[in-house]
């Protein structure tokens, strides 16, 4: 009996990995192009941005929150990176021009992303605005700021060195994949080995209990929103580099892909349960699904339907698991 319970628990724990495995087998049978090295690298390259964003989203969702603004933050920070690289900052009154290297532009974008996330965090914690509403407002604000900053035009031709971030390879593996891997490893370390990680799970599990046990809830929440937006900014850098252009309408609906990756990966939307590794699997499932549907020549309209159905299924399975527990 105990063995059966343990078996069921393991199945439940690895359900996303099993789903990914089955999906790969099915797509491998249906398309001879699926199991090729080039296609594998292509999937990983495409998934990398979502992994970065979804990793941040996981930390937020684990606290019981959500961030709908990551797509807009991605666009704004991508535009800022491109703008700073291209035009720097001018201060006519002081006859001063401040130019930015690639490192400077990327750092500036990530810092601005973190500040935007902190702002959302402050709104959520200090003003008790539900995360859904606070980040929805930030979604609109960041998109508007992107339009203001770019004038509605793309900022292009950012140079080959910058393009290496999004299109280059290191040891045969695309650079975005390396970046995503580093982000994931840091996030895994935070969630498993640090006090912050334990606090994140504690808050998501039972916020009142966490408060009573002395955890500074507001500080932790603010931190995860800042991290989430900073990772969205990093995603913006990768997207901008890959396209060699900052598009004012970049990142639209990226928040949905990130949330889908989190949910499919087994993180509970109620918080307190889930893992970064699960999210990585979730993001890969979405990437593989997208790739497979394209390889099978499925209409883009049907692709959306299928993706939606998979997300729905994941949530239903998650809820069923919660009920059993």
């Amino acid at each position: 009996m105990i063995a059966l319970a343990s078996y069921k628990k393991n199945i439940s724990r690895f359900q996303s990995v099993i789903a990914l495995f089955i999906l790969c087998i099915v797509l491998g049978v249906l398309s001879d192009k699926f199991f090729t090295a080039a296609n594998g690298l292509n999937v990983l390259r495409q998934v990398a941005v979502n992994v970065c964003i979804a990793t941040g989203m996981t930390l937020i969702v684990l606290t019981g929150g959500i961030d709908l603004s990551v797509g807009s933050v991605l666009a704004l920070c991508g535009a800022i990176t491109a703008g700073l690289l291209k035009n720097g900052l001018s201060f006519p009154s002081a006859d001063l021009f401040v130019g930015f290297t690639i490192l400077g532009a990327v750092l500036a974008a990530v810092i601005i992303g973190a500040l935007l996330g902190s702002f959302s965090g402050i709104v959520v914690t200090s003003f008790r605005v539900p995360p859904f509403v606070a980040t929805l407002a930030m979604l609109t604000i960041a998109r508007g700021l992107t339009m203001l900053y770019t004038g509605g035009h793309p900022i292009s031709n950012l140079g080959e060195d910058f393009a290496y971030i999004g299109t280059g390879s290191l040891l045969g593996v695309p650079v975005p994949v390396w970046i995503a891997a580093v982000v994931v490893l840091i996030a895994v370390f935070i969630t498993r080995k640090t006090k912050l990680g334990r606090y994140i799970y504690a808050i998501g599990g039972n916020e009142t209990a966490a408060r009573l046990s002395g955890i500074r809830i507001n500080k932790v929440k603010l931190t995860v929103y800042a991290i989430g937006a900073a990772l969205a900014a990093l995603g913006g850098v990768i997207v901008t580099s890959r396209l060699d252009s900052a598009q004012p309408n970049a990142g639209i609906s990226y928040e949905l892909d990130a949330i889908a990756a989190v949910v499919i990966g087994g993180t509970s939307l109620n918080g307190g349960k889930g893992s970064v590794w699960g999210t990585v699997i979730g993001a890969v499932i979405i990437g593989v699904l997208n790739n497979g549907l394209v390889l099978l020549n499925v209409s883009p309209f049907w692709q959306q339907v299928v993706k939606g159905a998979v997300i729905l299924l994941a949530v239903i399975v998650d809820k069923a698991g919660d009920k059993k527990e």
Partner: peptide, 16 residues
């Protein structure tokens, strides 16, 4: 060090 590697300064008139 990071700051030094991140930004550089010019006279705006010369840059233009």
């Amino acid at each position: 060090l990071v700051g030094y590697q991140s930004v550089y300064f010019r006279k705006l008139s010369e840059y233009r």
